[in-house]
Design a protein around this nucleic acid. Structure first.
Lengths: 205, 205
DNA sequence: TGACATACCTACTGGTCGGTTTGTAGTTTG
DNA sequence: CAAACTACAAACCGACCAGTAGGTATGTCA
């Protein structure tokens, strides 16, 4: 049930990070249930004892992966995007950021779903879900954009934000499922989606 | 590996259908991996031997569920929607049909993903995926709509269709993940999405 | 009414997988 | 330098679960 289990020594901390790195990749590729602890163990080059010394359970390890990744990109988004102080620019940047992230780091978006998969077994309210964080982020931008008149959309900002994030999320998973070979497919379709949103949310003139 | 394992007798066929009915519900709720054969057995009120008499494996049962459901709604869509011979009406009807289906029959959309979950273990090309069928359906409508001038959109019809279907799919899964209690949430957001698509794809004038 | 298929049940097996226990090098600290 | 702690390794455990073995009951038809 504890979280920051160990890492008191430089060596221990390094190993812990290495485990997190590999675990993020495997979890993202295969999902929580389909990931075997032995998969991670094999790829890290350690043994069961080592992993369970640093993390008390499979769920704890996965949660640590989620928390670490979430903190990382929340910081990046904060620095690179929300600093613009311009909802229109922020929304565009965020869209491009999402697309770029999905395209470059294949494991990144997989981790976004880990928290939700954990919620089934664990009793996490889902509030810590990276997905919810994305929605909140977009929702905030939409609200400020509407207030300043540069963005228009019907209904609740939260709902609109959810639709936007969900569209991206669905595009990723559907493309993975239907055209796993077609490497450009996601990029093409995401661009299309961005165009669509641009014309829909940005106030003409 | 066989498909229509049994069902030679009226009684046998009835049991087989009952198993399919229950299995569809359980698979849709919990997904392929998380579903235990014992779950289905309990709800059907039979035993292991009975299920394995009618279906040779868990994967075979799931595949049968997918095939049966897919055939059913493909027929319905054919009759209720594609008979209109009007791309604009068809697209609107199809959108409403999807929303209505998701809202009324909670297990319906879950089954759509079963085939994809099977592809991991099994070696199904994924071509039989209901998701692919939906995309093809929309893609066809878009093509005919563009040809007759009532629909406009940039790029490949297949890509546009994928974006549309993916947006719905993502909306369903994201809403389930983030707001499982909020019953109207999906409806509200889906309506928003339909408006959005309306203004984007339907030629103004 | 005997032969054979259909339809179903009970009990078990074999493998998988998360987690535990125990041991033991190396490192730090008193 | 000895006790104590850190950071791992190796072997093992027990629960879970898909699938099987072998039986029984209920037709059906000649």
């Amino acid at each position: 049930m504890e979280f920051g289990d160990t890492g008191s020594t430089p060596k221990g901390a390094a190993t812990r990070n290495e485990i997190l790195r590999v675990a993020a990749d495997v979890f993202a590729r295969k999902g929580f249930e389909q990931t075997r602890m032995d998969d991670i163990i094999r790829e890290v080059g350690l043994t069961k004892g080592a992993i369970y010394f640093h993390f008390s359970s499979k769920a704890t390890l996965a949660q640590a992966v989620v928390d670490e990744q979430k903190a990382r990109w929340l910081r990046r988004v904060q620095e690179e995007i929300l600093s613009k102080n311009n909802p229109l620019v922020e929304l565009r940047s965020l869209g491009e950021f999402m697309v770029r992230t999905v395209l470059s780091d294949s494991s990144a978006w997989g981790v976004v779903h880990l928290a939700n998969q954990l919620a089934s077994a664990n009793e996490h309210p889902g509030a810590s879900s990276p997905l919810a964080a994305w929605v909140d982020l977009v929702s905030g931008i939409l609200q400020r954009g509407r207030a300043s008149g540069v963005l228009t959309f019907p209904g609740d900002p939260g709902d609109a934000a959810t639709v936007i994030v969900a569209a991206f999320d669905g595009l990723k998973s559907v493309t993975d499922a239907l055209d796993p070979k077609d490497l450009d497919a996601f990029g093409r379709r995401a661009t299309l989606l961005l165009q669509l949103l641009e014309q829909q949310f940005v106030s003409s003139q």
